[in-house]
Amino acid sequence: MNDFAKRFLRSRSGMIGLVLLILLVLLAIFADVVYPGDPWRMVGRPNLPPFSEGFMFGTDQLGRDVAAGIVHGARISLLIGFASSVVALGVGVVVGAVAGYFSGWLDDVLMRFTEFFQTIPSFMLAIVLVAIFSPTLTSIVTAIAVVSWPPIARLVRAEFLTLRQRDFVKAAQVGGHSQFNIILHQVLPNALSPVIVMASLMVAAAILIESGLSFLGLGDRNYITWGFMIGAGRTMIRHAWWLSAIPGLAIFVTVLALNLFGQGLSDVLNPRLSRSNRT
């Protein structure tokens, strides 16, 4: 573990990503402290530009504080991003592990199932699902999870297929370990590295999907989200460009942080792939 942490500290991209992420998470957790109260409240004159007195990011056409919206919006984005990824991981790992370890007809069936979900245009499916089942936090998280799990399943399956053939797995079989035991203790720990990397990228993708849905009006109306702010600010783009620009930057920074973090993880877990320091 320490060895891993030490190597991660050396990864520049990983550290930048991690630091940014920590800042964002802290911001989201302490949103109520930094900007207490309802972000939908009208608190100032409408259409104030950024860096106005007391309003770092300005106000929108109804006089609402943009900065408050950004900070509270972080909560939703991060929440939905992580929640949907956890669900997608759960489903994907199980499907992939079973398909990759047991092979045969079970593998065939599960793979057809996975392929089906990969064939359907994913963003459209997300739209359809959220539209039909009304936009709530639950439906959004579910919809994003539904379109995100197939790549994980594929990856886990591939890892399991190769690992299953490894001699140390065979040794465990000859030693009489149960199948469940082998999957959990022999195969899975070795399969996790690429999955962890993919997971961090998946959170990033989930946030992008969520913001896209919000932009189209399919976000949960009870909460303020970055995508919604961009969509709302679209009509004012000529006069109050910051209403759309700033929330987008927030999304960009968050997704970038996650990507950098994932890159750092990848560098540490797969040292031979990072070509810049080859011997």
């Binding site: 913001s211 896209g212 679209r234 460009w241 620009a245 997704v255 990507n259």
Partner: peptide, 22 residues
């Protein structure tokens, strides 16, 4: 590539409009 990867599609479009049209 890292930057392009992180940009939200629809926002980029709006920013393009902002810059090149408005």
């Amino acid at each position: 590539a890292l930057i392009f990867f992180a940009l939200p599609l629809f926002w980029v479009g709006l920013m393009f409009i902002l810059l090149f049209s408005v």
